[in-house]
Design a protein around this nucleic acid. Structure first.
Length: 419
DNA sequence: TCTGGGGTCCTAGGACCC
DNA sequence: TCTGGGGTCCTAGGACCC
């Protein structure tokens, strides 16, 4: 039996989240900035109509935004995460098989649903009513086609937010109008390859010679084509795979030069990543640290990273911070204006599967207990209520966030007040 | 002055072993 | 002086995603 997938995608998600609490901004241009107020990462349709590009640096567009009375928000991840959870709850309530794909997207397995389009229309209404977030839904026998259908549903109002593709030749007229670079999995590199091969539309990619495709894009290309032809290659994962890595990194609010500042920042990011590990019940076996100057400056650039395999898998903040600050010291070069630092933890394992080493003692019960207490306090009273001294007190490198909306749903002191 | 952050997957190439 | 080939594991880096 043919599978039927749906892709539910929130429209302009971060902007829609802000509008839930600012209904006066409905119909008006709104953008949301990335961390550090660096880039524009979400735009309302009205902002898109003003030709404000995705990823544009804020400082370059500030004047233009003011001139056109665009409302600007700093990023508010607590709010977006919370509303995302509420959207996913609604989806899970109406469908038994949901794969959460990102903060604003989920695949549903609608195989066996008698009228998927009618189902999707109703679901769309429900999410809008219950959570206040508008969504678009694409339906198809493969994930790639569901993505295409979703994109069409979002951009062409005559579809009313729901579009279905079948995986047969009846898709072809629509695929002819769909640019190849809009396909899921086609980025800049593959788009260039397609361009030189004369492949312009999704239709062209569907019927292009498979030998050529394999030579140029290897299995990635072949899989993409299979999916466009209606044969499902990308499996549906109702249960998420265990996470394989965690990253914590930030650009600094202002550039720093001192080793001690970098170590403080790296210790802070390490603490954040280690907390993620503990929350997920995972440990890490490999720690990687990097520091770099701004990639936009033309001179005096420096970037370097270094990693180390850990003798004993751990998620202990103190142990990891100590290693991380040592590593920073080995790659630090004085005289540079550092802009960013980060920590990657790789080779994650299940916490329960503790491996003993001949050379090092296992993480002691005492250390685990300390971490548990620290987490409990910080979960209850807010991040960094208590923290290791290595992560610093002044944090001169801390991010900038000048136009933030309140944490309406996750902080009692900031809940919306009805007048 | 000011340009995001967190992930996954794939491939190439080196090290090492037999 | 002559100097193989195949397999596996690891890491780095590219490409892509949201």
């Amino acid at each position: 039996m043919n599978r039927v997938f749906a892709l539910v995608d929130c429209n302009n998600f971060f902007v829609s989240c802000e509008r839930v609490f600012r209904p006066d901004l409905e119909g008006k241009p709104v953008v949301v900035l990335s961390n550090n107020d660096g880039c524009i990462v979400a735009r309302s349709n009205e902002a898109k109509a003003l030709d404000i590009p995705m990823g544009a640096p804020y400082f370059k567009w500030k004047t233009y935004l003011e001139q056109h009375h665009v409302t600007v928000f700093s990023t508010n991840f607590m709010l977006y995460g919370d509303l995302s959870g509420r959207v996913m709850d609604v989806l899970q309530e109406h469908c038994s098989s949901v794969e959460i794909y990102s903060i604003d997207e989920a695949f549903l397995d609608l195989t066996g649903v008698p009228d998927p389009v009618a189902f999707a229309r109703e679901l769309r209404q429900t999410v809008r009513q219950w959570v206040g977030i508008p969504v678009s839904i694409g339906i198809a026998p493969t994930k790639t086609l569901a993505k295409v259908a979703n994109s069409v549903a979002k951009k062409q109002s005559q579809y009313g937010g729901v579009c279905q593709l079948t995986g047969t030749a009846s898709d072809d007229p629509l695929l002819q109008t769909f640019p190849v670079e809009g396909i899921w999995g086609v980025g800049r590199g593959h788009a260039t390859t397609f361009f030189w091969g004369g492949v312009e539309s999704a239709y062209d990619a569907k019927y292009v010679d498979a030998t050529w495709l394999k030579e140029k894009m290897h299995t990635t290309g072949l899989r993409l084509q299979e999916e466009l032809r209606g044969r499902s290659v990308h499996a549906f994962h109702a249960e998420p795979d265990p996470q394989k890595s965690v990253i914590a990194s930030r650009s600094f609010g202002q550039q720093v030069t001192a080793l001690s500042d970098l170590q403080e920042a790296v210790a802070t990011f390490t603490a954040r990543a280690a907390k993620k590990l503990r929350d997920a019940g995972r440990t890490t076996t490999y720690l990687w640290v990097y520091i770099c100057t701004s990639r936009f400056r033309s001179t005096d650039r420096y970037s370097n990273g270094i990693g180390t395999a850990l003798e004993v898998p751990t998620n202990d903040t103190l142990a990891l911070s100590a290693r991380a600050t040592q590593l920073v010291e080995t790659i630090y070069k004085p005289g540079y204006m550092y802009q960013k630092a980060g920590v990657h933890m790789l080779g994650l394992q299940d916490e329960a599967r503790e491996q003993l080493s001949f050379f090092m003692p296992p993480t002691t019960t005492k250390q685990k207990h300390l971490m548990a207490i620290m987490d409990r306090i910080n979960d209850k009273f807010g991040e960094r209520t208590i923290f290791p001294a290595s992560t610093g007190v002044a944090q001169t490198w801390k991010v900038k966030r000048e136009r933030g909306s309140p944490a309406y749903t996750t902080e009692w002191k900031e809940v919306a007040i009805v007048r």
